[in-house]
Design a binder for these strands. Structure first.
Lengths: 156, 156
DNA sequence: TATTGTTATACTCTATAACTATA
DNA sequence: TATAGTTATAGAGTATAACAATA
């Protein structure tokens, strides 16, 4: 390696303030970092962060259709199909026809699904805690509250 | 529409607390919302949020190579190629061979590029302000600070 | 041999359009 | 006609592998 190359190593570090002061950059990379931590924490339980979200929605209030579950998650119904296929293959959810409208599928958690949900939720919570661990005391709570306000607002 | 359908409309609203209390969901959807606002604000200037980020990196400290610029952005050098192709087609940047190492491209902003950067940065800032507008006074600043702390930490 | 820019390729996530069965 | 689930397809955004030029 020449001295040229050493100069490059020094100069090639990370992003400067022109990026790290922009909210869009911060949100994107905070999300990426937490997603990595969460994926690692969920891996022993055999599900992804997106699949955990699906299980959470199904457990919250039993949806009367796949489409309803998709709406609660903010994804398209066609995306929900593949997610449920994977969860059904893993034995975590089961589809059955709606009693009054046979076009619909009611989706339920299996016993294994409920157990996985419980363990995976705890693993995810621990990943969140580790992610926030370096923030001073009230800041983690404040971050969550601020994001909640921003996200749950009606569309502008 | 039957009363069945009306029931569905009521039940199909949004995500419940099982999702909106999870940090991963909040970060992802906050990022999505701001990205939408930013894209709309930048559209009159003919660039995307990612392209604005490239212009910001190029303007910050002139990179000695495309690869260096990519590292500052946290993307792959192969991704940078396509981004620069688009910006060069729009006449916002220019590539020229590095004086001492002809494998490299030095990438500069054109006069039009600098002008676009200035206007687009302001439009992006305004989008950020609108995004944060509904937060009480210190919360926007605190949000930015907390994210900055989380994102600029060395890898755990 | 190693590195830079480039191309080809593939993988993930997502949405749109069209099909089917039901309503 | 309209809706739910499904399939095929396509478009971002991203990365890996391999190549030519250069070091």
């Amino acid at each position: 390696m020449s001295s040229e190359a050493r100069d490059d190593q020094e100069a090639a570090e990370g992003p400067g303030p022109e990026l790290t002061n922009r909210l869009g950059y911060l949100l994107k990379h905070a999300q990426l970092r937490l997603a990595e931590l969460t994926a690692a924490a969920l891996e022993p339980h055999g599900i992804s962060g997106r699949e955990l979200a699906v299980l959470l929605v199904l457990a919250g209030r039993e949806p009367a259709s796949q489409q309803q579950a998709a709406q609660r998650l903010g994804i398209d119904r066609t995306t929900m199909v593949a997610l449920l296929d994977a969860l059904e293959d893993k034995g975590l959810v089961a589809r059955r026809p709606h009693a009054d409208d046979r076009r619909r599928n009611v989706v339920e958690l299996t016993a294994v699904g409920r157990d996985t949900l419980r363990r995976a939720t705890q693993a995810g919570d621990e990943a969140e805690d580790r992610f926030l661990a370096t923030l001073p005391q009230p800041a983690g709570r404040q971050l969550r509250d601020a994001l909640h306000t921003l996200v749950t607002q009606p569309y502008r």
